[in-house]
Structure formats: C-alpha cells, structure tokens
Simulated assay, not measured.
Amino acid sequence: MGGKLYRHHLFWPVTVLGALLLFNLIYSPDFFSLVIRGGNLYGSLIDILNFGAPLILVSIGMTLVIATGGIDLSVGSIVAISGAMACLTISKGTDQSSFLLVIGAVGASIILSVVLGMWNGALVTITRIQPIIATLILMVAGRGIAQLITSGQIITVSNSNYEYIGAGSLAALPFSIFIVAAALLIASLLTRRTAIGLFIESVGSNPEASRLAGLRSKTVILTVYIFCGLCAGVAGLILSSNVSSADGNNAGLWYELDAILAVVIGGTSLNGGRFYLMGTVIGALIIQTLTTTIYMIGVPPEITLVVKAFVVLAVCLIQSEAFRKTLITRWKKRNYPAEQEVTRHA
C-alpha cells in the first residue's frame, strides 16, 4: 500500500505543496486563518486560490496541448489580447455600467481568443510548422497586437458587472474559483468520460500510428489548441477585471513558462502521451504558493525570479524517479561499499 502511494503521480506534487504550506504556517502562524468580512471569506489560502485562478486555467489548456506532443508559447500574449479587447470594448461604450456592454465585451474577447487558438492549431496541422515555432510567432506578435489595441496605454474601466468576473464573490468565495472549477470539470468529463482523452493521448504517443488507425490527428490537435486559446482568453478576462484595467505590455507576462512548469510538475511528460489534469492544478497551486511565500518572507524583487527558478528546479528533480534512483544508488555506494561489491559479483 505504501509503495503504491509512493509511486502515485500525485504523491510528490502534493508533498511539495504540503511542505510549502507548512513552511508558511511556521513562518506566519496565522497563515491558515480565515475571516469573514461582508459575508465573504478572506485569508492567505483564499488569496492563493483567487490569484492562482488565471494560471490554473491557462495550465489546464496547456496540459492538453502538451499531451498531443505540442506546446503553446502564445498563451501569455492571448491573455493580454483578451483583457485588452474587453476593456477597449467597455471603454468605447456609451453606457459604462451596462450589463449588455459587458456581455458584448466578454463575447468579443472569447471569440478572438478562439480564433487565435485556431490560428496556432492551423499553423501546426496545416502548414506543419513545429509547435514551438508556430506559437512563438503569436507570442511575439500577440504582445504587439495587445499594445496596438490599447494604443500603448493602460486602459481603465469602471463597470461593476465586469469587475465581478475577477473580483466578485459567490457563496462567500471568489467567483474566479468557480470559473476554474467549471473549466476543470468540463475538461475532466470530456477527457475521462469520453474517448477524447484517449484520442489526445494516442496522438501524443504516436501521431502517425493514430492517423493510420483512422484517427483524425489534425482535428484533435486543432481542437486542443482552440481550447488552450479559450482558457487563456478567460484567464485574461479574470486578470483584467480584477484590476479593472488592461496592460498590453505586462498582462500575462511569463504565463506560458509558468503554465509549462505547472504541467511538468503535475506529472505530464513534455514528450506527449498520458496527461494528468489534477496534477497540473496542483502544480499551478505550487507555483502560486511559492510566489506568495517569496513575497511574504521579503525576498528582494530583483532576485525573486532566481529564487523561484531554483525552487522549481528542486521540485522537478525531487519528482524525477531517475534522479531519485541515482541519489539512492550513490548513497548506498558511499555507506555500504562492501554490500555493493557483493551484489555486483553475484
């Protein structure tokens, strides 16, 4: 039983997340405390879930893309474009408080995000450009598009209906948490209760064999890129509505790298094939908790990314079974040389 638990794909991500939370609790004894103000829950744990919601969304979409053997470096740019489009639409409206204006702005952003995801998928499937190059194009150009939409300025809006997406509450919890839960539920049902998940893993494991078996590999790949674009678009809405503004230059910056790290920490291989959505969610929570920890202990801003990189590297190494076996073997050789010699001769 213990061996099976140790080998479970979620064991190390959950262990690392628990260790981070324990460190925070030791450093700040009131870290787990929750308070109710105005009928809503507040606390560090709620903040981690709330601020981590956009990254979790992007990571869910990235998981399916990586499972097909691809990668999407443009998600950060799509986040910026989505937020910029929504805020621009609202700012141009005659009635800033109109609910219909928000519906139109959200709809425009979602449609644009889906189109951008379709663009990435088309480059990969139709023109057969390598995914890293195909999405790198939109990663660079997309940031410019976001700045064109905002005219290089930060667009601010004042609409309570739009603010509710990222800053509102439902049942005493941030509304963004329910958006993430819905996305995770839909993705899980589609990939684990239908054949879609099997199709994705088959394409990621061996796309040519899948094609020869009658599976429409191009359709599967195109679909996951569209879904990834959709997730990034919704994440952009959450980010921009939370601060009631759109910054085409900084919104979603480095999200693509954090999302890839979350997927890898969650146990999904970059080579494609089998994927773990729940592992990805835990990976994203690890990254967000780590960010919160770094800010809490007062790490200087100029070395924040360095500290984050070293911790993530340590997490990935701990999770690597090959790395752990190497450490155990070297430890045994150092402490039990005679036993290793007998085993070698035997």
Rank of each mutant, 00 (worst) to 15 (best):
S217C: 14
S217Q: 13
S217M: 13
K218F: 09
K218R: 14
T219V: 13
T219H: 11
V220Y: 06
V220P: 02
I221E: 02
L222D: 03
L222H: 11
L222Y: 13
T223R: 09
V224Y: 04
F227V: 15
G229P: 12
L230S: 10
C231H: 11
C231S: 13
G233F: 01
G233V: 15
V234A: 09
A235V: 11
A235P: 13
L237E: 03
I238K: 03
I238R: 07
L239R: 03
L239P: 07
S240V: 08
S240D: 11
S241V: 06
V243Y: 12
S244T: 08
S245Q: 11
S245H: 04
S245V: 05
A246G: 00
D247S: 07
D247A: 10
D247L: 09
G248F: 04
N250M: 10
G252F: 07
G252R: 04
W254K: 12
W254G: 08
Y255R: 04
Y255E: 03
Y255Q: 01
E256Q: 13
L257S: 13
L257I: 14
A259K: 07
L261Y: 02
L261W: 00
L261A: 05
A262S: 15
V263W: 01
I265H: 05
I265Q: 03
G266K: 04
G267W: 03
T268R: 00
S269C: 11
G273H: 10
R274K: 15
R274V: 14
F275Q: 01
F275T: 14
Y276H: 14
Y276P: 09
L277Y: 01
L277H: 06
M278Q: 13
M278E: 12
G279M: 01
T280R: 11
V281S: 09
V281I: 15
V281N: 09
I282S: 06
G283Q: 06
G283A: 10
G283Y: 00
G283N: 12
A284K: 00
A284N: 01
L285V: 08
L285D: 00
L285F: 08
I286W: 01
Q288G: 06
Q288N: 12
Q288Y: 06
T289P: 00
L290D: 05
L290M: 10
L290Q: 07
T291F: 06
